[in-house]
Design a protein around this nucleic acid. Structure first.
Lengths: 338, 338
DNA sequence: CACCAAGATGGAACCGGTTCCAATTGGCGA
DNA sequence: TCGCCAATTGGAACCGGTTCCATCTTGGTG
């Protein structure tokens, strides 16, 4: 049983508790001989200090809270992997919170900073409301957003408007005029990228003089299956699109499955472009807009660690690049009549 | 700032600290009027209790430690998703530890239980040594292994020997005699499944009267790229195998890539079977042995929670089934001359 | 040889909850 | 009216570290 306390150690080593504490914390103000005595007492008693007591007396948790929505989403997982890679070699523990239901958002976003559960917070793919932000600053816990934006908070993200533009423009350059957009719900307040990419999509259309057609945009919950459904509807329209821009690679997979189901060939009958460049996109040779998912986690975690060391008054912003990766699901549009 | 303590609340409500504590913990021994006073004081002061203090005084952390090796491995992630799905609706926090380097294993496995960092422990895909197990029981922290085995510990796993047998037997039934096994290092003490599947592989061979050929077994670090390398070697042997059993789907993907690189068609020139049924296996139509990855996490977490409620003296064992999923990377062996 | 600063050390107070015991109050039966 | 018990309540002690201040050495200095 590790009921041994610092006082037991002190008694056994014949020193005061303060000295034991100093040894535990590598304070230089301990003579070598005393340090030795304490150390051997520690070993003899198989003592190791209670984290809880340490946290309380130091007023620090030595933990970083990571809040993630829909932990099953591959791009979220990839970002988290980046975060883990940084934190697992830091001295901080990583406490993971997964938000699956809407009502969890509020309670988490409010109670976690309040209760001083963590010395720092990382929000992944979660755009906080102004009210949330107020809670954060009230609690005075350093916070970094990864793949989300708020003017008052530090963040790491990509330019999603540019990314949406890039994807759509590529399809246009391939000769497509009838381009669908398959996405999550646009009005999800916590998901700003979905709106930004949509904006980029419309910008590219407008720039090319192509009129936006409302029936070419479908929205639903995120997921491969939902994307498949939506695509089915899109492709059975009287005048179906010849290319589809999917908000995510996961959805692009659903799009491709729907096309196959209808006997259409990708890319010959339908061009498909995704977004994220998750691993599966590589296996399946999906043309996509790459964003550095893992890297975003790394940078977010590093930014947070540095801010915990030395806070800045201005919110820090890191903008990562996006990059078009042309693979095998997109091709030149050949006019039906030729 | 949330510097407000329970004493401030007590003062403001005109009651004792004990009473405030009782209100916080929904003790029935508080009159409604007092409860009301305290509650409004709490709201007025925007008070929320310090987790650290609570942990110390209660002697419980309300956290569950999850120790995971190589968090980038998709099957590990999938199990973790199962764990998260259970814990995120429980009252416990999930503290995640990722072990990437060998020396981290020892320090984690030793210090985490010791320091009472968590009220319960979940080890994923990590077979502990006897010495580790002793530490666990010494610390008296309930522990459940997921995808690992030790006679003295609770665990959730599949029968990997049977799985390896199943995979190999299937290839044999398809007419293959020259069957390779691509795997992680067999002598990794923390990875027992790799040995078990190998055992199953050899059993199936033996049963069919096929002699085991050492040159048909390759081992390396886990990974798609390494698998690709190994397969390249295997396929350029003077007498190459006609089928390959890969320890994991990730490795199966590498195997397939190597075959394509050499201009061989899968499954016509080479049958490939994987293990795990990760999501990518579905996309890529890889024949595999399905094991319920997500489910294993769910069951492990549930078992742990129940053990934390009511400990059992005997270690609990949950055995999940494996299932062959025939897809498009395996086919009948057609004798070359035919 | 006296004096002082720097280096060690001991230990009380503290971090902010929980818990348990003693004290107070009110209701009710005898 | 009095005694007794149950329901409430107050608050000291405690959880196990850290920290700061007072105390005690020591070695160097004039």
């Amino acid at each position: 049983m590790s009921k041994t306390t610092i006082r037991d150690v002190a008694k056994r080593a014949g020193v005061g508790v303060g000295t034991v504490s100093r040894v535990l914390n590598n304070s230089p103000a301990v003579s070598e001989t005393t340090r030795g005595k304490v150390q051997s007492a520690i070993e003899a008693l198989n003592f190791s200090p209670s984290l809880a007591a340490r946290r309380l007396s130091r007023g620090k948790t030595m933990a970083i809270g990571v809040i993630v929505p829909f932990f099953t989403n591959p791009s979220v997982v990839r970002r988290l992997q980046g975060i883990v890679s940084v934190l697992s070699v830091s001295k901080y523990d990583l406490v993971l919170f997964d938000i699956e239901k809407v009502n969890q958002r509020d309670s988490f976003l409010r109670t976690i900073p309040q209760r001083k559960m963590a010395d720092g917070l990382l929000l992944v793919s979660l755009t906080p409301t102004d009210a949330d932000v107020e809670q954060f600053s009230l609690a005075n816990v350093p916070t970094v957003l990864v793949d989300a934006y708020h003017p008052a908070l530090n963040h790491v993200r990509v330019d999603n408007i540019a990314g949406g533009y890039q994807a759509t423009k590529y399809l246009i350059e391939l000769g497509h005029h009838k381009i669908g957009y398959i996405s999550d719900y646009l009005d999800d307040p916590f998901n700003s990228p979905v709106r930004d990419r949509f904006t980029g999509y419309k910008q590219a259309l407008a720039e090319a003089g192509i009129e936006f057609r409302a029936e070419y945009h479908c929205e639903d919950r995120h997921g491969r299956f939902q994307a498949q459904q939506m695509t089915h509807n899109l492709l059975t329209l009287p005048d179906p699109p010849t290319a589809i821009f999917a908000y995510s690679d996961t959805q692009a997979i659903g799009v491709i499955e729907a096309a196959q189901e209808l006997g259409l060939s990708v890319p010959d009958d339908l061009s498909v472009i995704g977004f994220d460049n998750i691993e599966a996109a590589e296996y399946l040779h999906i043309t996509t807009i790459r964003q550095a998912l893992f890297e975003s986690g790394v940078q977010g975690a590093e930014l947070l660690l540095s801010l915990m060391q030395t806070p800045t008054s201005e919110p820090q912003e890191i903008l990562l690049p996006t990059e078009l990766i042309a693979r095998h699901t997109t091709t030149q549009y050949i006019n039906g009549t030729f």
